[in-house]
Every structure is written in C-alpha cells, then in structure tokens.
C-alpha cells in the first residue's frame, strides 16, 4: 500500500502519471471513493503517463470511453451498473484483455468481477478542501 498527498489537480495528475509508468497491458485500475475527489484528473494523468494523448473525460454518460493507444485504454464508469447482466451489456469482458488497460470509476459496484491483480486507487479528502489523500493498493489482499 502506498499513500500520496496531493494539494492540486496537477499534482494528482503527476502521481497518476508515475503509477502509469509501472503498468502494462492487462492492468485493471479500480477507483474507490466518492464524487468530486478527482478521479477524472487522476485518469487524465494516468492516460498521459501511458504516452497516450487522448482527451480524457468522464464516462458517466457513455459508461465507457475508448482512448485507443498501445496498450489500448478504456475508461469505465460503473455508477449505473447494478447487476451481472448490466455489466455484461457494457461489453466489460470484451474490453478486458492482455493488451488493454482498464480504468474503472465506481468500481465498488463490480467488486466481484474485478481480477485478482487489480490496482485499487482510493482518493479521499485531506486536511483542506484542496488536499487529497491517494491510496494505491495492489491486489485485493492489500485492502
């Protein structure tokens, strides 16, 4: 488990970029934590850190954004996914391959579908409104 403190969205992006450098195809990054914590900022930094210059935006309405690249990056929002049938119909299993990287917001909703090696990223409010405590855990056993 590694804990980082960020004071600005730019710092959050930098922390994410550093994590992205350690990751390769087949990785699943699962976000935990509430709204307004900077998950999309983290995703933006992460995608940049993978050498992908796609525009990163919230997948709330589309459920999944496809950023392309190599490895191919997909960005999910599971907020509205409640059942296994819901999950299947997002195409989740089609996207999870050895050559893709999945970023998953509201991963709590699909906890039991996440693979064992999932990297969990929890973002919580720090001392001030601008501070964020970012906790990165590798694998479910680390929770």
């Amino acid at each position: 488990m590694t804990v980082y403190t960020s004071h600005t969205p730019a710092q959050t992006e930098q922390i994410a970029s550093a994590l992205a450098a350690e990751v390769s195809g087949g990785a699943v990054i699962a976000f935990r934590g509430g709204m307004g914590m900077g998950k999309t900022a983290f995703a933006r930094g992460f995608v940049k850190g993978m050498g992908n210059d796609a525009d990163v935006y919230s997948p709330t309405f589309a459920i999944v954004n496809d950023y392309g690249g190599e490895p191919h990056i997909y960005h999910f929002d599971m907020y509205r996914v409640e059942t296994w049938d819901d999950l299947y119909s997002t195409g989740f299993y089609d996207y999870m391959t050895d050559t893709s990287v999945l970023l998953i917001e509201w991963s709590e909703n699909i906890e039991n579908a996440l693979p064992p090696g999932t990297i969990y990223v929890e973002i919580a409010r720090g001392e001030t409104d601008c501070d964020r405590i970012i906790t990165v855990r590798k694998g479910r056993d680390d929770i």
Binding site: V81, N109, E111
Partner: peptide
C-alpha cells in the same frame, strides 16, 4: 441471442468488502 449466466452464488457488488 444471449444466454444468462448463473451468478446466484455471489453478488456483483461485494457489500462486505465495500463496507470496510
């Protein structure tokens, strides 16, 4: 034609884990 998977054995959302 889709076939339903049997998922009765466990929930998609692991409430026990997420209430930690």
């Amino acid at each position: 034609t889709y076939l339903r998977l049997s998922q009765a054995e466990r929930e998609l959302n692991n409430k026990k884990l997420n209430n930690k």
